[in-house]
Computed example of a mutant assay.
Amino acid sequence: MTHPAPKGAIPDTPLFDRDASIRGYRMNKMAMALGEPANRDAFRDNEEAYLDRFGLSTEEKAAVMARDWHEMVRLGGNLFFILKISAVDPVPITQIGAAQAGMEHGAFLAQRLGKV
């Protein structure tokens, strides 16, 4: 069931609510499991097999494997959980911020942090 956007909602910004939490449960559980060293090793060794252990859908797997942060959030990923994936790669948090803002990383750094 889709609910109307709450008052003051930011356009094109997924809301992490109960529905998103339920929708993203498998992906969030997978990401949280990356807190264990053995799981990080399994993720690095065979990412697709690791994702299959948690029953991720084809769409969820594609988003994780592409490191499509915006899509993971749209699919119900809790940003605090999916950031664990960035610790395995590692991916700079500013790169994730740029993806969430729909910006190129360099432009994001320039606009948000005044860096060129």
Score class of each variant (00 low, 15 high):
M1N: 14
M1P: 15
H3P: 06
G8R: 09
A9N: 09
A9H: 14
A9P: 12
I10G: 06
T13M: 07
R18S: 06
R18G: 09
A20F: 01
R23N: 02
R23C: 05
G24P: 01
M27C: 01
N28A: 01
K29S: 11
K29H: 04
M30L: 05
M32V: 12
N39P: 00
N39K: 12
D41H: 08
A42I: 03
F43H: 07
N46K: 13
E47A: 14
E48Q: 15
A49Q: 14
A49S: 12
D52S: 10
R53D: 00
F54Y: 15
G55Y: 04
G55L: 10
G55A: 04
L56R: 11
E60F: 00
A62F: 08
A63E: 06
M65S: 07
A66P: 04
R67L: 05
D68V: 09
V73M: 05
G76N: 12
G77I: 04
F80H: 15
I82Y: 13
L83M: 14
I85F: 13
A87M: 08
D89S: 04
P90I: 00
P92S: 04
I93T: 11
T94W: 03
A99V: 02
Q100I: 10
A101C: 00
G102Y: 12
G102E: 11
M103K: 15
H105L: 00
K115G: 11
